[in-house]
C-alpha cells in the first residue's frame, strides 16, 4: 500500500530573467494520502499544482518541508502523465514505451503492447508520434505511466489540451484502467466536473499553494455525468471555491 506524506511543503522559485521577483509556488502545504485512493487536486492557475507533482515525482526539490512517497516503507515508483504527451518524436510508439523500462526483453515489449491495447492503440505501435492525433498521443502517455507498474500515479491535467469530446472518452479510459489496477493517484485538474467524476477526495488549493479545503466523495463508480448526486457535489465544490475567491479578495488569511 502506498502513502504520500506531505508536510509543511514550501517551494519558492528564485528570481529569473523574465521575472525579477521570487515566486512562492507552494506555501506550507500539508496532506497525507494513504492507500489506493484517487485524489483530485483542484486549484486556479498558478496555485502550484504542477510544482507539487514535480516534487512528488522527485524532479524538483522542495525549498522546505518534506514529501515522502513510500510503498511498504521504500521509495514508491512513480508513473507520471503530463499535461502534454511528452513523447520522444524520433521514436516509434512502442519504443517510447520501452524507453521508460529498465529491462528490454521480449517480455517488456509484450507488456508495452498490452498497455497500448488497453488504451485502444494496439495497432499503432510502430508509428511515430507525429503520425498520431493529439488524443492518441495522450493515450500513449497514459499507457506509458501504467507500464512502469507505478505505486503512485501522477496526472497533471492530462485532458486539458484536448477537445471536450476526446477528453471525455479518455476520462472513461482512465477510469476503466484505474478501476482495474487501483493505484494511489494524484490527479491535478482545473475542471471540477472531471474531479467529481473521478475522485475519492478533492483537495482544493488556492493561489500560493495552500490547502483551502478537502472533500471526500463517497459515490459508487462508474459515475454518470448528470447524476443528481454527482451534481450536488459539483455545486458544493464550486460554492466553496466561490467562498475562497471572496476570502482571497478580501485578504482573509488563514480562513
Amino acid at each position: 500500500m502506498a502513502t504520500v506524506l506531505i508536510e509543511d511543503l514550501t517551494k519558492v522559485y528564485p528570481p529569473t530573467i523574465n521575472n525579477p521577483k521570487q515566486v512562492q509556488a507552494l506555501g506550507g502545504l500539508s496532506m497525507s494520502i494513504t492507500g489506493n485512493v484517487f485524489v483530485a487536486v483542484v486549484g486556479p492557475s498558478g496555485s502550484g499544482k504542477t510544482t507539487l507533482l514535480n516534487i512528488v515525482a522527485g524532479v524538483e526539490l522542495p525549498t522546505s518541508g518534506s514529501v515522502r512517497a513510500l510503498q511498504e516503507g521504500v521509495p514508491a515508483r512513480v508513473g507520471y502523465v503530463f499535461q502534454e504527451p511528452r513523447l520522444l518524436p524520433w521514436r516509434t510508439v512502442v519504443d517510447n514505451m520501452l524507453y521508460v523500462q529498465d529491462r528490454k526483453s521480449d517480455r517488456s515489449r509484450r507488456e508495452a503492447e498490452f498497455y497500448l491495447q488497453m488504451v485502444g492503440l494496439g495497432d499503432v505501435a510502430d508509428l511515430y508520434p507525429s503520425q498520431l492525433s493529439g488524443g492518441m498521443q495522450q493515450r500513449v502517455g497514459i499507457a506509458r505511466a501504467f507500464l512502469v507498474n507505478p505505486d503512485v500515479l501522477l496526472l497533471d491535467e492530462p485532458f486539458s489540451h484536448l477537445d471536450a469530446l476526446t477528453g471525455r472518452s479518455l476520462r472513461d479510459y482512465l477510469q476503466r484502467i484505474w478501476l482495474q489496477s487501483r493505484k494511489t493517484a494524484l490527479f491535478v485538474t482545473h475542471d471540477v466536473t472531471e474531479a467529481v467524476e473521478l475522485a475519492d477526495r478533492i483537495v482544493m488549493l488556492r493561489p500560493g499553494g495552500v490547502t483551502y479545503d478537502d472533500i471526500s466523495i463517497d459515490l459508487p463508480r462508474p459515475r454518470r455525468h448528470g447524476d443528481p448526486a454527482v451534481r450536488d457535489i459539483q455545486d458544493e465544490v464550486l460554492r466553496r471555491f466561490d467562498a475562497m475567491g471572496a476570502a482571497v479578495r478580501f485578504g482573509a488569511e488563514g480562513v
Binding site: G58, V59, V148
Partner: peptide, 25 residues
C-alpha cells in the same frame, strides 16, 4: 527541457538521457 523532466521522472539515468534525448534531438 520537458523531455528531460519526463526522463528523470521515470528514473532514467544521466547516461540514458544523453543517449536517449540529447543526442537524437
Amino acid at each position: 527541457r520537458r523531455l528531460i523532466v519526463m526522463s528523470e521522472s521515470f528514473g532514467r539515468t544521466r547516461a540514458q538521457i544523453i543517449v536517449g534525448v540529447l543526442i537524437p534531438s
